[in-house]
Each structure stands twice: as structure tokens, then as C-alpha cells.
Design a protein around this nucleic acid. Sequence first.
DNA 1: GGGTATGCGGAGGCGGTCTCCGAGTAGATG
DNA 2: CATCTACTCGGAGACCGCCTCCGCATACCC
Lengths: 187, 187
Amino acid sequence: MATTQRPMRADARRNYERLLAAARVAFAEQGTEASLEEIARAAGVGIGTLYRHFPTRRALLEAVLHDGLVTLDTQARELLGSDSPQEALLEWTRHLMAHATVYRGLAATLMSSLNDPASELYGACQQTRAGGSALLAAAQRTGAVRDDVTGTDLMRLVNAVAWIGEHCGDDTSERLLGLVMDGLRAQ
Amino acid sequence: MATTQRPMRADARRNYERLLAAARVAFAEQGTEASLEEIARAAGVGIGTLYRHFPTRRALLEAVLHDGLVTLDTQARELLGSDSPQEALLEWTRHLMAHATVYRGLAATLMSSLNDPASELYGACQQTRAGGSALLAAAQRTGAVRDDVTGTDLMRLVNAVAWIGEHCGDDTSERLLGLVMDGLRAQ
DNA sequence: GGGTATGCGGAGGCGGTCTCCGAGTAGATG
DNA sequence: CATCTACTCGGAGACCGCCTCCGCATACCC
């Protein structure tokens, strides 16, 4: 996608990597709203350089999250072959929630990127949604999950529970995820 | 609560009211993160005056929301006498969600005030939670709602669905509220 | 009308976002 | 190896929002 033609100049690539590493640390410590100036400073790079590589905060976040999204996609594919689609769905939503929880503030970013084609995270969200939809459909085919739930509903609900988790330290969010997923069962 | 002794000076009271009115407009138009300086300007008042009356953004929000919270409380009390506690609970959660949706960004503020005694909105949240807990308990007593749900869970879930609503224009949030509340039924 | 407690307002410090452009340099070319 | 150029760097600076502080104004009491 980003591979136009020529490889990046050595200094550019080095700075790119440094920024990525610094961003990971900063997001982990202070959430997705961490100061971009501080990230540049930590990376030993000028603020201009940060903005050239990552025009928006979301672009930086996308790069940082890329690996996790690929993993999530792989997990969805693997679970799609499960004997118990309902179990598989539950398991995957746990992975999804874990992903949406790695940085404070991430759930909100993901939520707004879900319907915003202008967001750098839109593509990633759509891909994840597709994976979730497949698992959901499989579970619905067995009659275990109510039919009026869409893949988008699933993404939104899991994100919302992840967001709850940001506001209460204990393990409430896992319990609530179970509660909500339980509520999706066909009666 | 605020009535210590002496009534406010006439100019102070006037400015207080103006700020409240301006804040209502600004929050409605730009969400709870509207610029406080702009609110002061719209009220025809200095920024220092705003901060004297409302030391924090949440204090201002609390004043703006006060009437709505009283209404919510009244509604809870009325619904507590309902023939169908389950119906009553559902109805009240609709009111609650409507309340959490009046301003963009409000759901997030309420969510973090729910466990933060330092927040000016903590008291209001606790009172609302108490109302919800009573309705929930009544519904649980009839066996219609699962027993492992707490009043705090209820608040969090409704807030989370309201938050979803902020990120998707259509009527999805109402549908999702129905879905989630449906999931709380005892099986 | 005079005195005082109370309230007013905005300048100013801080820290954040984002742009723009002169200076610096990696790497291709002869 | 020297030269040249296109790419990249860095940070000054414009702008905005938060919040504090204190000299000035004035509402209210007597």
C-alpha cells in the first residue's frame, strides 16, 4: 500500500521506526491522547518530522496498531473452523476487547473510525468487522445467536464494553462482556 | 446546598444565570468539550467570572444538568409503583439514555463521574444509580431479570449504549438498548 | 454618602496542535 | 572521490484553549 517505488531514505526509515517505538511507549503510558510533541521529543526527532511521517494522530495510531489487527484477523480465520461457532464467537470477542483496551482512549478512536471513511483506521475497522461478521454469521446459522444482530452491532457493543473497562479498574468489563454476549443468544 | 447564608450579590446572580444559559447553548451545539472561553464571551462575561462561579467544567455541567437529574429521579419514583417492574425498568432506561444523550460527550463525563467521588457529578450519578437500582431490584424480585446484574452495571451499560449513539447518527442506539436490556432477562 | 466586602475582567503563563521553509544530508552520477 | 540534487530534517511561530492572579469596580449595609 505504502510501497510506491523507491525505498525510504535511510535517515527517514530510522526516524520512522524511532517514532513508532516512542509512540507505543507514550500511548501505553498516557493513552491515545498523549502529546505528539512529547513523542517526537522522546524519539529524538523534530515535531515536523513526526507530522511528515504521520499527518494525523490516527495515522500514527494505525501504524502502531497494525500488527495487532493482523493478529486479530488471523484469529478470526482460525476460529471460523471451530466446532462450536458460539464458543468461537465469544472467544474472538474477548480477543477483540483485549485489542480495544491496549491503550486508554483507543475504544473511542475505534468507535468513531468505524463509520468514518476519512479515518486512517477505517480500513482496519472494516476488515476486523468482516472477520467478526463471519464468526457471527456462523453462530447464527447454528441458531445459537439471535438473527437481528449485525456485525456492526457486534463491533459497537464490544467497543462499548471495552470503553466501560477504561472507566473502572476491576474486571467488570470482562463480566459485562459475558453478560452482553449472553444476551445475544437466541431464546 | 449552595445556600450558605447571605444571598448572592445582584450582579453575581445575573452573571451566573447568563453563564448557565450560554453554556446550555454551547454544549448543545459543540458538546461538553465546548470552549469555556467562548461560553464566557457569549455570556458577555470575563473568563475569570466563569471560573469563579464554576471552578471546573464539570461543575458547570452539573449546574446545567440539574433539572434533568431531578426529573429522572421523579420518573424513577413514579415507575417504582408500576404493575410491570420489567416494563418500568425498560422505560426508565430509555429516559436515562435520553438524558445521557442531550449533549455530545456527556456519556463519557457521566461514566467517569460514576466512580469518582471527586467529581462534581458524583452525587448526581449516585442518586440516579440509586433510582435505577430500586427499579432493577423490583424487576429482579419478579424473576424477570437475572440476579447477577447490579445497579452500577445498569448505569454503565446504558451509558455505554448512549455513547454508541454519539457515534452513529441513526436510531441504532435505541435498538441496541433494547437488545442489551433484552439480554438482562432471566432465562 | 461613605466604607468595605464582594465580585469583575482580562493579561499572561503554560502547553498543545499544526504549518512552513531554510538548512542539512543521503545517495545517485560521472 | 567529488559533485549535485532531491529528499528530509527541525524548530520557530501562529493559533487556540486552560486556568490563575490581582488591581479595579461596585453592590450593599449603615
